[in-house]
């Protein structure tokens, strides 16, 4: 039986093959464009994040380094301590650092014109002050040119860099109180002798 062709036409007008095909093709183009745009967006965002990370790293690196430096300064204050060789011809400085045993040049009190182990206290800043208290020893000053030796006793206060000479016994302890404004730092230098009669100095808290 022949079916109604007009109905058939009307039905298929709702499901037009060409129209659907065109819509599909349009959507594929839109997707491609959208994908390209998204690729660019992803690239930009990634680059931006990368730049922020790099920038952040360098921004932090500076302050971290500064913090480390400040920590060092805070720990040691604006000062340094050096053990000097008691040679009159050439001054050799060995910085005393925390928990490091520094050998001191052999010193024979009887045979040396130097009154004791020379230790240089190097102060920085205008308002720095260092109080030095020694146990089992004495503090001297010495002027090499004139040879004048001055006994300071077991305690002294210095306001600028100065070399002091320490007459030591078996275990001599030098307590240091550094002040700069409201800042106060305490350290201890222990001078001791080993079995071979070599002297060492060690800086501690």
């Amino acid at each position: 039986m022949k079916r109604n062709s007009k109905i058939k036409e009307e039905i298929w007008s709702d499901f037009d093959s060409s129209k659907n095909f065109q819509k599909i093709m349009n959507r594929t183009k839109e997707e491609k464009n959208s994908s390209t745009r998204n690729d660019w967006k992803i690239m930009l965002v990634t680059s931006f994040v990368f730049l922020i990370l790099i920038g952040g790293f360098f921004c932090i690196k500076g302050p971290i380094a500064q913090m480390k430096k400040e920590k060092h300064i805070v720990e040691n204050g604006n000062f340094q301590i050096f053990a000097l060789s008691n040679s009159e011809e050439k001054e050799v400085k060995k910085e005393l650092k925390e928990n490091i045993h520094v050998p001191l040049k052999n010193y024979n009190e009887a045979m040396s014109s130097v009154p004791g182990f020379p230790i240089l206290f190097k102060l920085e800043g205008n308002d720095s002050q260092m109080e030095i208290i020694v146990k089992n020893g004495n503090i001297y000053t010495w002027v090499p040119s004139s040879g004048i030796v001055t006994l300071l006793g077991e305690k002294t206060i210095i306001n600028e860099s100065q070399t002091l000479y320490f007459q030591v016994q078996k275990d001599t302890i030098i307590d240091i109180i550094y002040r700069q404004g409201e800042k106060k730092i305490q350290k201890r230098i222990t001078i001791y002798q080993d079995e071979d009669f070599n002297y060492y100095a060690i800086l501690t808290n």
């Binding site: 079916r3 109604n4 007009k6 109905i7 058939k8 036409e9 009307e10 039905i11 298929w12 709702d14 499901f15």
Partner: peptide, 28 residues
């Protein structure tokens, strides 16, 4: 005519889905 066929198809589309399907498969 086309006008009537359009009316018929619109009428069918509003019927229950199974009726529309049967109609589509038969005439479409």
């Amino acid at each position: 005519n086309k006008e009537l066929s359009k009316k018929v198809w619109e009428y069918i589309k509003k019927k229950k889905p199974l009726i529309t399907k049967v109609f589509f498969l038969y005439y479409g």
